[in-house]
């Protein structure tokens, strides 16, 4: 069905790992989604297209944009951990929110939760998170520009 086809394409674009898994075992698509044979064939063709790597990169760049714009110190403090943290965050929140402050606020909450669970990061992460999460929260409040 079309809804599953579109969702599968979005999921593949968000996950190079899923693309690789489908390349190895195309039947995975039919197990995860309700697809016609034609839709499954189309997805398999897309996954094998050389441009798919670029789609995956652009997806990650687009999702990184609100985080880099609104939490630059936190991103810098995360350093080499940023790749893994961002990937985990996107897996946890597979859809981006169009409101950049909501997206950044959600990311800050995610990092805070990871720290609370015992995940360790570089020494600057805690202070960067405190400062920028407060700034993002304030910007989010101010974006309520009109009466409810």
């Amino acid at each position: 069905m079309l809804a599953d086809f579109q969702q599968a394409l979005a999921d593949l674009t968000a996950s190079p790992e899923l693309c690789m898994a489908v390349k190895i075992d195309p039947s995975l698509l039919m197990r995860r989604y309700q697809l016609t044979d034609r839709e499954a064939g189309r997805l398999e063709g897309i996954v094998r297209h050389p441009g798919m790597a670029c789609s995956c990169m652009v997806y990650r760049a687009n999702r990184l944009a609100p985080l880099a714009l609104n939490t630059p110190r936190l991103c810098k403090a995360l350093g080499h951990d940023l790749r893994a943290v961002a990937s985990d965050y996107w897996a946890d929140h597979p859809q981006s929110n169009v409101h950049f402050y909501v997206e950044a606020d959600r990311f800050c909450r995610f990092v805070r939760r990871e720290i609370a669970r015992g995940r360790s990061f570089g020494p600057e992460v805690g202070s960067a998170l405190e400062i920028e999460s407060a700034q993002v929260a304030a910007a989010l409040r101010e974006s309520h520009t009109e009466a409810a």
């Binding site: 079309l2 674009t13 968000a14 997806y59 859809q95 169009v98």
Partner: peptide, 16 residues
């Protein structure tokens, strides 16, 4: 994407 939880959440890229 059709199975997203909320309509204002986007796929992160314009999909073909």
């Amino acid at each position: 994407t059709p199975k997203g939880a909320v309509p204002n959440a986007q796929a992160g890229l314009g999909l073909p």
